[in-house]
Design a protein around this nucleic acid. Sequence first.
DNA 1: TTTGGCACTCTTCCTATATGAGTGCCAACG
DNA 2: CGTTGGCACTCATATAGGAAGAGTGCCAAA
Lengths: 349, 349
Amino acid sequence: MSKVSSAVVSDRAQQLLKLLVERYIREGQPIGSRTLARGQGLDLSPASIRNVMADLEDLGLVKAPHTSAGRIPTVQGYRLFVDSLLTVKPLGQHEVLALQDKFSQAADPQQVLVTASSLLSEISSMAGVIMVPRREQPTVRQVEFISLSGNRVLVVLVMNGNQVQNRMITTSRRYSPAELTQAANYLNHALAGKDFNKVRDALLVEMRETQESINQLMLAAIDMANRTFQGGEEGGDYVLAGQTNLMGYAEMADIDRLRQLFDAFNRKRDILHLLDQAAHAQGVQIFIGEESGYEVLDACSVVTSPYEVEGEVVGVLGVIGPTRMAYDRLIPLVDVTAKLLGAALNQNQ
Amino acid sequence: MSKVSSAVVSDRAQQLLKLLVERYIREGQPIGSRTLARGQGLDLSPASIRNVMADLEDLGLVKAPHTSAGRIPTVQGYRLFVDSLLTVKPLGQHEVLALQDKFSQAADPQQVLVTASSLLSEISSMAGVIMVPRREQPTVRQVEFISLSGNRVLVVLVMNGNQVQNRMITTSRRYSPAELTQAANYLNHALAGKDFNKVRDALLVEMRETQESINQLMLAAIDMANRTFQGGEEGGDYVLAGQTNLMGYAEMADIDRLRQLFDAFNRKRDILHLLDQAAHAQGVQIFIGEESGYEVLDACSVVTSPYEVEGEVVGVLGVIGPTRMAYDRLIPLVDVTAKLLGAALNQNQ
DNA sequence: TTTGGCACTCTTCCTATATGAGTGCCAACG
DNA sequence: CGTTGGCACTCATATAGGAAGAGTGCCAAA
């Protein structure tokens, strides 16, 4: 993929590329040779810079929107910039403290995620996203039946990962607590063997024989579990904040593309796939423009980082914004937030 | 507010207004006198129509975007149209059946709401919204404690309205099922009296004396309940679908206004207020443009209807779209969906 | 009361033209 | 040989001038 070995890019060319990208990120307009010459204390004439630019353009690192405009970085240009030219601006000490403070105010885990994605979006002025990945092979840890008023029974499923599911069932007759306990015990036992469908079939057969509707209860529990498993396969979920920030950027002004992007957010699938990739990498990862592989994100870059709980990666978070984003600020932001989020979740569970 | 008594609008003027609005809704462009004359089998010359139009303009029912454009309806024009001119296009029999079918596929109540709002948005090509209003004075119906592995106990709170809440608590020692049952019984009994804080204080005192951490468990349950009550005050929530549909309309092309609208969707407050108003009216209600009272909705109309479960209004649903919307189709759509939703929730709970 | 006629107003679209930013290339310079 | 100034050239952008077309308002006649 990387046709461009940075070896063939002279030191000076790299320096100029760096200046160009930085400036373009700041100002958002094509940078001309004259502008670039004036900018930093370079003692180079515009003409010389033009020569270098021509080289950079040949290498596919910059391009000119049209003949008489300056140059802007290409995706490859950004890539080289991010990989080897970038000087990161670490977060200030008290910014970190401010972040930590916000995190400490969130009570339950869900709240922590919402807080984190809001923080990401607010600080970056872009969209913040946090993925809660599929939990590894869901299992039922425990089933309980709670008798309610009337003929109603509450089925409670405790999954691994301490996730809980409820469903209310109306049965054909009232069951005593003892009966319910017995049913729960039976199921808990049976499900330890783990082959759901077998248990299910057995119940079905037995039900036909005995007409006992308590089996229906157990079936309901199994079906709930099954549904969770299927749901689990589909690959997690995410919390998104600040989508509307993206509407503020000139490079996203095309309302049709924007709509497609928002549709993708709602569909979730593509974004989840992308975040999933980032889960397997370690540390901050950056997808610039088309690199993501999703057409809707062509005009966007995504900065991600996995976050860990108890030393294990449990999810990915990131920011999504226009390709022209302040990578130098965002990378540490995403990095720190990932760590703080991990820490907060650790305390909180 | 209504300066315009329809009495002063001649029959013919009303007829022409009706034609104009219908046509404008269809085509989206200012309608000229010539066009209007040709349109329906009117034997009126453009000149006569111009006279009428001048009258309608004086009454504030139509306006011309500029000198040499045709006329478009004003908010007041739409209002008169909707109130007394509109001929509703009822849904076809098998459209209703198709809707019913979709509803029947949804399993749990939450699913039903999601389905309904998706349906609204898909059929209308606009945004569909369904409000779950604040439940009236939340009450705890039942508390249960489920012993999990380790020292963990799952607190299950069954509220009225069959809503269920879970929370996992780690206790200082392991409790036998019998102990847990006893605690639950005690709490269920105590809470029947309903004065939460009293129960809470009693528990606190007793806890200090006995050092019994099972009281902690009960306290946790009470706190959960309290939190739900406070949360309930904040006024319901809603399910929104198809926001992005709104990006397709020319009259919403202004990206800044669109952003404000989307921000309002996220903020939820304003939209909830509006829907809340509609809950007290009965039947379909329509807010045209500025009538809603919210600036972000100035370019929008909202068609709402409350929906009922067991004969009681429990929520409101509606569609949100540009002022130029097909009221004749949307009104029955919203109406029927509200009824089907009520029916589905009835069955489903 | 209705209608045809007519002048008038605006928007929209096209064209032409000037402006200015920035480039590429070349020849000269150190 | 890298660097630089000069210069012709390109192209986006802005501005102005018309021409076309749609639609109105008003008036006088039917």
